[in-house]
């Protein structure tokens, strides 16, 4: 990380630069403030059970926000994650009835890979705007799921015990209830952080998003990076779907759809620039936690779903505009 001290700069700019360099500190402060407000509004709500619950609900959001983080690093976005997660969850729940779990898992991941591939080719080769492209594939995916639902309507669905255990279960360790989902999430998050920081692929994601022309002149082939990226994103979304069905336990055709907007907002709050080239996964994780706590808070305040969406929209707009100012002042 950088510790730059070239010339004395005004206090305001120093704050801005600090925010740009270490977005984690203000984010953690914000998270703590939200928890404190919650505790004041409902004394006693913040307890062990509440923490475990919050983490359980934050994890699927955090993984989907990871998809957004990675795609946003390249200046893209992946709006098909909701559909992909729903598809893999639904297929898993229906195929497990009369299939081997391993085969059901492979079947569940197939549409994820396929949609990721189509997204990647559309964005990387044909240069369709990622937003339009992923919106389109998610529409097609939803259609396919509806057709699929007809074919399996007779056989019914069940939630595999393992997924239920992973999604909702807790394991007491030294007197504290650790959600089992952390078993999946911690290695996954570590892998994402490592990929972004220490692998060639991660480097390219940042570089492509920062300056595609520069990467081209350095010999990077854009379509390769983008295709690999969107397939990765889709696979992550598929895994999230499996985890989420274990948490929600009710397969439906719009299972993960409500997570899409918050996943974008979480990545933006976490300091990832929607223009690409800047950000990281640790910020996103805290962003997901903030949004989960915020949702609890808004529920307690009885704020309707509509107001929540407005809030998410305004957050995205303001954070982006503020970010643009910070960058321009340099």
């Amino acid at each position: 990380m950088s510790t730059s001290a070239i010339t004395p700069v005004p206090f305001g700019r120093r704050i801005k630069r600090f925010m740009a360099d270490r977005p984690l500190v203000p984010l953690i402060i914000l998270l703590v403030i939200l928890v404190v407000i919650l505790q004041i509004l409902r004394p006693g709500i913040v307890n062990e059970r509440w923490i475990a619950n919050t983490i359980k609900f934050a994890i699927p959001l955090a993984i989907l926000a990871g998809c957004q983080t990675m795609t946003m690093l390249t200046g893209g976005i992946d709006l098909s994650v909701g559909t992909v997660a729903t598809m893999s969850a639904f297929i898993m729940a229906t195929q497990i009835v009369n299939q081997d779990p391993a085969i059901a898992f492979l079947l569940a991941m197939m549409p994820a890979v396929l949609i990721g591939l189509v997204n990647g080719i559309g964005v990387g080769v044909f240069r369709v705007h990622p937003l339009i492209m992923t919106l389109g594939t998610s529409l097609i995916g939803t259609g396919c799921l509806q057709v699929y639902q007809r074919t399996v309507i007779a056989s019914g669905a069940k939630i595999p015990d393992f997924l239920a255990w992973l999604g909702t279960g807790v394991t007491p360790i030294v007197g504290f209830a650790f959600p089992n989902a952390l078993l999946l999430f911690v290695p996954l998050a570590a892998l994402i952080v490592f990929t972004l920081a220490r692998t060639g692929f991660g480097r390219l994601l940042y570089a492509v998003g920062d300056n595609e022309r520069a990467t081209r002149l350095s010999g990077v082939q854009y379509w390769q990076v983008i295709t690999a990226l969107y397939v990765t994103s889709s696979v992550l979304a598929g895994i999230t779907g499996l985890l989420y069905i274990g948490l929600i336990k009710a397969p439906s055709l719009s299972l993960a759809e409500p997570l899409v907007l918050p996943s974008v907002a979480a990545a933006v709050i976490g300091g990832t620039s929607i223009f690409g080239g800047r950000g990281g996964y640790t910020g996103t994780i805290i962003g997901a936690l903030i949004l989960t706590v915020l949702t609890t808070l808004l529920t307690i305040l009885q704020m309707p779903e509509g107001a929540r969406r407005i809030l998410f929209g305004l957050i995205v707009l303001f954070v982006t505009a503020a970010y643009l100012r910070i960058v321009e002042e340099r």
């Binding site: 490592f194 692929f201 990467t215 350095s218 990077v220 082939q221």
Partner: peptide, 15 residues
């Protein structure tokens, strides 16, 4: 400076 090193597909792994 290291950007060209990661360009090729085979160099996408850990650095």
């Amino acid at each position: 400076i290291a950007l060209p090193f990661s360009a090729a597909l085979r160099n996408w792994g850990p650095i």
